[in-house]
Computed example of a mutant assay.
Amino acid sequence: MPSPPRVVVLAGGVGGSKFTLGVRGALAARGVADTAAQLTVVVNTGDDLWLSGVRLQPDVDSIVYALAGVNDTVRGWGRTGDTERAGHELQEWGAGWPWFTLGDLDLGTHLARTGWLREGFSPTEVIERMSHRWPLGARLLPMTDAEVDTTVTVRDAACGQQRDLHFQEWWTRHRATLEPVRFTNPGVEAAVPAPGVLDAIAAADVVLLAPSNPVVSIGPILAVPGIRDALRATRAPVVGVSGIIGGQVVRGMADVCLRAIGVETSAAAVAGLYGARAGAGLLDAWLIAEEDAHLAPEVDGLGIRPLVTPLWMTDAATSAALGEAALAAAGV
C-alpha cells in the first residue's frame, strides 16, 4: 500500500483556512490516521502587528481556529461565541484601535502568545505551543520568525501625497478604499524562513498554493529569501488554486491589491503572476473554476497545466473535494 503523501500548503486568510481544512479532510478521507504527520502549513505572518502591547497574528489564528473547529464561520474570523468587553474597555481608555475588533477569547490568545514571546520563545515555538491545545491535524509553521509586517503605501486624495499605513489599518479601517501604490514588507530582505519550512518543502510530495490573496497573503511568504528558490527546486509538483472565480474575488479586496501591481482580476492573470515552473515561475498546475473554463487555453499557453474543477468551498464536503482535486492534480 503506498505511503500517504507529504503535503505542504502555503496559506493565509479565510481562503487559506478553508482550503487547509479541505486538504486535511481529503487526507482523512483517504484513511490517513495521523494527518498532522503528513500536512505542513506555512502561514503568512505579514498581517501581524503589535496592538495595545500584545502581538497579533491574524492569519495564524484564523488557521488555528479553523482547524480546531472554534472559528466564527459567520464573520469569517475570530472565535465563535466571542464577546468584546475587553476591547470596549480599551477603547474607553483611548487605547488600541476603535475600528479593530478585539474579542475577549481572541485577546486571551494574544496575551498567551505575547507572554511566551517575552519569555524568549520564537514565533515557531509559540505556534507549536498553541497547537497543543487542540488536535489540529496539521503542523503549522510561520513563514519566518522575523517581524516583517506589511506596509501599504497609499495615495491620499485629500492631501495629494503618499503615506504609509500598516496593512491592517488599510484593510480593516479603510476597507481598501485608499488607492494603494505599493505593498512592502520592511525587513524581509534580511529575514530567513522559519525552522522547518525549507526542509518541509524539500521533502514534500506535493506543494499547494492556497486560494489566498496572491499579493498580501501568498506574496509575503514568497518574499522571504529562500522560499521561492525552494519551491522551484523541490521535486514535488507545485499546484495552485485560483481565488478568482468568474472574474470576481471570492472574499476580501484582492482585486484592489492586484490592480495596484498591474495584474487583471482573472484566474489566468493570477496564474501568470505566479508563473510556470517550466520558465522562471512556480506553478506546475493551476486549478480554475468551472466558471473560468474558457481560460484554460490561456493558462496552458503560460506553460501551466490547467484543471477545471468546482472551487466554491461552501461546507466541509466541498472543501474536502477541492483538497482532493488539488492532490489528484499532483498525481499523489
Rank of each mutant, 00 (worst) to 15 (best):
L117C: 02
G103V: 04
G115R: 14
V64Q: 04
G81R: 11
G323L: 11
A236M: 06
G12H: 11
T172I: 14
A203R: 15
P98D: 11
T109K: 00
L307I: 10
D229E: 15
V332D: 03
L282V: 05
D82N: 10
L67H: 12
A29V: 06
A191G: 09
W77G: 05
R75Y: 01
R232I: 01
S122T: 14
A203T: 14
A95V: 07
V74M: 07
A194K: 14
G46H: 05
N213I: 04
L283P: 02
T35P: 05
A236K: 03
P5Y: 09
G69H: 05
P211H: 11
I218T: 12
G87R: 11
R24A: 04
P214I: 01
I244G: 02
L49G: 01
G103I: 05
A254V: 01
A329C: 08
V154I: 15
S217L: 00
A254G: 12
V249F: 06
T80Y: 10
G81L: 10
D61C: 11
V23E: 15
G96M: 08
D292M: 04
M143H: 08
G240I: 00
W77F: 14
T314V: 13
G25I: 10
L67A: 06
R30Q: 12
L208P: 14
V9Q: 06
V216H: 01
V224L: 04
V308I: 06
A26P: 09
L208R: 12
E169R: 01
V241N: 04
T124G: 13
S242W: 13
A112I: 00
P5F: 11
S3E: 13
E189H: 08
A293F: 02
G323Q: 05
D48M: 08
L140P: 00
V70L: 15
E125R: 15
D199I: 03
V224G: 09
L222P: 01
P180F: 09
V197K: 14
D48Q: 12
R163C: 06
G120F: 03
V14W: 05
G53V: 12
G12I: 03
G22A: 08
V152W: 07
V8W: 00
H110N: 11
L287S: 03
H132Q: 14
D72T: 03
V54D: 03
H110C: 02
V43N: 00
V126K: 10
G31I: 15
A95W: 14
V197Y: 05
G115F: 03
V126M: 07
A260G: 05
F19A: 09
A191P: 15
R24T: 01
D300N: 12
T20V: 13
A37S: 14
R259L: 10
L27T: 00
G246T: 06
I288P: 04
P193Y: 08
V332M: 01
D34Q: 13
G219Y: 07
R85D: 12
D229R: 12
L111G: 06
Q162L: 07
G108R: 13
D47L: 02
T172E: 14
V42R: 06
G226E: 10
L311V: 10
Q168C: 02
P98N: 09
L39N: 08
A320Q: 02
P4D: 01
R305Q: 09
R305P: 00
V32P: 04
R305G: 01
